[in-house]
């Protein structure tokens, strides 16, 4: 370890001091990569040591190597399942062709393959659910936030409700949402199943608040001078919102949306576990119930995937914010 660090130091311009402020942009980036890499290595090492000392009823706690093995095994599962699906389709087509050859009036149909959902399928389901729930929350929260920010009477009317509902864990809503959805929602759609809608609404219920509150604050804190400019030139309401209010509030709106997406993603996993709705949460729960010697490793894969996806979602939001924001010089993190 010491040897590695020494080597790193030698490759840096200011060899004997970690002076973060100096250096060109490239050396700075190089340094931050090295530091991040070191952090990960140290973590992996400590994980390895800790894991080898923890024994559970399902065997030893998985270390980095076991988890990596499980990544391979999940990948193999996925490929096997895909192959089965392909075989199934080919078989159906062959059979249909045979039947049609005998009886030209035969009503040939292709039934969809209903195999066990793989890890990749569960990830896709979760992403779709969080995306849909977040989308619903956003299209409600931003306009409502703008209205609250512009009109203090409406804000006074809505604010108590926000304050009361904001701290409610969406998991408390889950039974109610499940019952309401199953009572009111009818659909044969393969994507928009009842479970999907339930999970998505649960995500919406918790990702509503940060966006709503931040939008309201962003709208109310528009520079007074700019509002006076708008009044002097008698800007009509729609231009006032699009030219003055929204651009000013964009940074706050995005802060809220990023918080919303992050909580939405966290809550979704919990909701899927609790309600047995398809997705990563269900994958974890199933593995836990399954209780094989591989289970903990597989759960750990899911945990890391959840973290990486959450991180990626936030980065995507950041990219969108950079695109949308007028202030290209602002430091966004």
């Amino acid at each position: 370890m010491e040897a590695i660090l020494n080597k790193i130091r030698l490759t840096l311009p200011s060899a004997n001091s970690f002076d973060f402020a100096s250096g060109s942009a490239i050396t700075k980036m190089f340094r931050s990569w090295i530091l991040a890499g070191t952090g990960i290595l140290v973590f992996l090492f400590m994980w390895h040591v800790a894991a080898s000392n923890i024994n559970t009823s399902l065997g030893q706690f998985p270390g980095p190597t076991q988890v990596w093995e499980q990544v391979g095994s999940l990948k193999a599962d996925y490929q096997r399942e895909k192959q089965r699906e392909r075989d199934f389709m080919v078989r159906q087509q062959e059979r249909n062709a045979e039947r049609l050859a005998v009886d030209p009036d035969y009503d040939a149909r292709i039934r969809p393959y209903t195999g066990r959902p793989t890890f990749v399928d569960q990830v896709q389901t979760s992403l779709l659910t969080v995306g849909f729930g977040f989308f619903i929350a956003t299209i409600i929260a931003i306009p409502l936030g703008i209205i609250c920010g512009l009109n203090s009477s409406i804000y006074s009317a809505i604010n108590p409700l926000i304050q009361v509902f904001k701290p409610v864990s969406p998991l408390a809503w889950l039974p109610l949402v499940t019952m309401v959805v199953s009572a009111l929602y009818v659909s044969d759609s393969e994507v928009f199943t009842k479970a999907f809608v339930t999970s998505a609404i649960t995500v919406s219920l918790c990702s509503l608040w940060p966006t709503l509150i931040n939008t309201t604050v962003g709208v109310t804190s528009v520079d007074k001078d700019l509002i006076n400019v708008s009044r002097v030139i008698q800007l009509p309401a729609h231009l006032h919102v699009t030219k003055i209010v929204l651009p000013s509030a964009v940074p706050m709106i995005f802060t809220g949306m990023r918080m919303s997406l992050a909580t939405g993603w966290m809550v979704l996993i919990a909701a899927e576990m609790l309600a047995q709705n398809p997705g990563l949460g269900k994958f974890i729960w199933d593995e836990f119930q399954n209780g094989s010697s591989d289970s903990l490793g597989r759960i750990m894969v899911a945990v890391i995937a959840i973290g990486l996806i959450g991180f990626a979602l936030d980065k995507i939001m950041l990219l969108i914010q950079r695109k949308v924001s007028w202030d290209k010089t602002a430091v966004l993190r």
Partner: peptide, 28 residues
């Protein structure tokens, strides 16, 4: 009430930071 027939030049310019010089004047 405010009206463009009484234009105001504000102490700290009050330009919209997201609009160019041209667009700021154009909006008015």
């Amino acid at each position: 009430s405010p009206n463009p027939d009484r234009a105001v030049v504000f102490q700290n310019h009050a330009l919209l930071p997201w609009l160019t010089v041209y667009e700021n004047v154009e909006l008015a």
